[in-house]
Nucleic acid binder design. Sequence first.
DNA 1: CTGTATCCTTAGGGATACTG
DNA 2: CAGTATCCCTAAGGATACAG
Lengths: 137, 137
Amino acid sequence: MKRTDRRSDCPVNYAIEAFGDSWSLLLIRDMVFKNKRTYSEFTDSEERISTNILADRLRTLTLSGIIRKDGTGKNSFYTLTVKGLDLVPVLLEMIAWAGKYDSETGAPTEFLERFENDRKGLLKELQQKLQTSHEIL
Amino acid sequence: MKRTDRRSDCPVNYAIEAFGDSWSLLLIRDMVFKNKRTYSEFTDSEERISTNILADRLRTLTLSGIIRKDGTGKNSFYTLTVKGLDLVPVLLEMIAWAGKYDSETGAPTEFLERFENDRKGLLKELQQKLQTSHEIL
DNA sequence: CTGTATCCTTAGGGATACTG
DNA sequence: CAGTATCCCTAAGGATACAG
């Protein structure tokens, strides 16, 4: 996306244009909370993303530096970059919000309590877990 | 939106379906940071939302309980509900993220520093400011 | 000023067949 | 398994005229 395509230079708008579509954040969720990294793992999500969209999102998220592709051919896999890992707080706030207002699901209460009481610890733990699993691969 | 229309019961998906389109969060931003409350104030945003979309988003955000309409006719105005105010942390995290990675704009550094060092204070201040301006109206 | 209504175009997305 | 390619459809969105 060329710079001039942006609707505005507002940071909120920057975020929306980077991951504000209806699929990107779900992929990031799968990477953060379910340790998914391969194409077929992503197609198996509950929301059933179709392959053309998946390929497109993996491409655009890579272009914007949120994820990175490693390996080649059948051994290729995707991992979060630091820029992508830095989206974890956004994700957590969204989950906390939904947990408070979505009667159908909500987040597990232990999670919300932990988030409330030890926000920094939870974040650090999550990011470290992700960092190490990246290194192992 | 009927419950069965949901792609999944995931909280992330709930959030996306509530405000994950490309305009809702900009309206909420305008309410939070620019104290906008009237129809014409919203049409004046930098991103130039068109009136049909604006009317639609005001309707859906009202339906999902994120904003509320008060007054009538020419005196009508919109305010954030508690559910909407609870989106401020999400907004702040997005701004912090964009501030870190968007070279074109970024958030003001004082803001980011304050967010880093006194997250709770900043949040409380913002929400109180919004609460009181609502009451004044 | 606060919306509605309409027309039209494009982007997003589902389904599915196909390829290396 | 990791994608590409097509076809097709709908929803999202812009422009703009109109109405109370």
